[in-house]
Design a protein around this nucleic acid. Structure first.
Lengths: 231, 231
DNA sequence: GTAATATGTTAGACAAATCTAACTTTTTTT
DNA sequence: AAAAAAAGTTAGATTTGTCTAACATATTAC
């Protein structure tokens, strides 16, 4: 067998891979003031706290986070930018997988989780082009621009709506395959218009109507994970 | 900022990543009898020999290679299959990048080198489907099927052709960006028909005609990297 | 057939990312 | 305000993949 492709330099981007996962988690966990507790981060990444502490020191030394003992961590501007680039790659990928490859929105997260670490500006540039420069990913989350800027509409949770409201489904919180499959099973997708028919006072179960479904019941758990805007 | 995508399990396929690079290199370097020297492997991967030796022991323990001290290494059937799957993913990706994303054949190798490690049968299944189950990658190398089987035509090097031969360019050996850019600059692409006009006996420079070019000179180095079939 | 060279292995060190156990600081409860 | 709980850190061990230096075996050259 001829050794085609003998020119095969081994590129290892493992340094980034791990660092990138920390940065992304920090970005996603940041509250309004940008703070993240080591404990939360540890839970999110499923990495024990001492390991996280030591990594925070390392990221601190690289000026990617502000770190002081016993205080919550904050991404620096540099760190925020790097994190946003990764999230941009993740969300562009999700959009590409759904729109251009026909993969279901319940399956794209896991794939994007891997693709987001690919180092190739050209690759993501092409995705962006082919998609027509989308602003939102398939779950309604905003795609940061190349500088890491991201405009965020403050949507309302369906569980905060009142009887009689007519609303449009614009985003989902929690992109677990199970939850998205549940939404599929009820024909619930982004852009759908619904009307709140009834809210059970006891457990906040919401009864809604939409499309051909005149009376569908959604638990509070579901209602809290659906973001909507008034029509 | 709302923590959308809070469900974000960190998947680390680093074990595979490194192992996969060894397997791929072993596959690509295998000669007719399937043997690879530790030294070659070391050169290919740019990893020092002792490291390679110890990895061969590890792969041996996992029944991915046959390893005996001071002897060349051979992939086991299991190892060959795993390697072929990675090469399949690599080549499918290259084809996808060229055909569906409009990326130049000189740029796809580096991206595919990263994408090939993605763990998602669905992702590669979709690529295959969208491409119409291609048998060859953009450089003319065969894409192994899902079981790792790969049919290989034994092509001839352009440098072995004689004056008067009419040939078709079917594959390139060496997929370095520099070489492919050189081919681009001469309008040399797969499928192109050429005629051998003259071979300089002194240095084996080949003069060919094709398309609008009546007399293009190609060095032996180039001729050895172009695989052709007689028309 | 021995010497020289190339190839391959062993031993031991090192860096990175992880862990557990023990300790410290901060926050919450009462 | 003291005790209890939660959060965070330190110290030290472990694993993995890498390295260098030194040694062993094969191959090639003469």
């Amino acid at each position: 067998m001829l050794p085609l492709h003998a020119y095969n330099v081994y590129i290892c981007q493992m340094n980034s891979l791990i660092e990138e996962n920390y940065l992304k988690a920090l970005f996603n966990l940041s509250n309004k003031s940008g703070e993240v507790n080591v404990n939360e981060l540890s839970r999110q990444l499923q990495i024990k706290m001492p390991t996280v502490t030591s990594m925070m020191k390392k990221l601190g030394a690289k000026k990617l986070v502000h770190y002081e003992s016993y205080k919550p961590v904050r991404l620096t501007e540099k760190g925020k930018k790097e994190a946003a680039v990764i999230i941009r790659k993740h969300r562009l990928t999700e959009m590409f997988l759904v729109q251009k490859m026909g993969i279901g929105w319940e399956d794209v997260h896991e794939i994007a989780e891997q693709v987001e670490h690919i180092q190739s500006p050209e690759f993501f540039q092409k995705m962006d082009e082919l998609l027509g420069y989308p602003k939102l990913d398939p779950h309604g989350s905003p795609i940061p621009d190349k500088n890491g800027k991201m405009t965020w509409k403050q949507y309302r949770k369906m569980s905060d709506c009142k009887v009689g409201d007519t609303i449009k489904l614009v985003a989902v919180i929690n992109t677990s395959a199970e939850f998205l499959k549940f939404l599929n099973s009820r024909d619930l997708r982004l852009g759908l218009k619904l009307k709140i028919k009834f809210v059970e006072p006891f457990d906040n179960t919401i009864t809604v109507s939409y499309g051909k479904r005149q009376s569908e019941m959604l638990s509070q758990t579901v209602g809290e994970r659906l973001l909507v805007e008034k029509v």
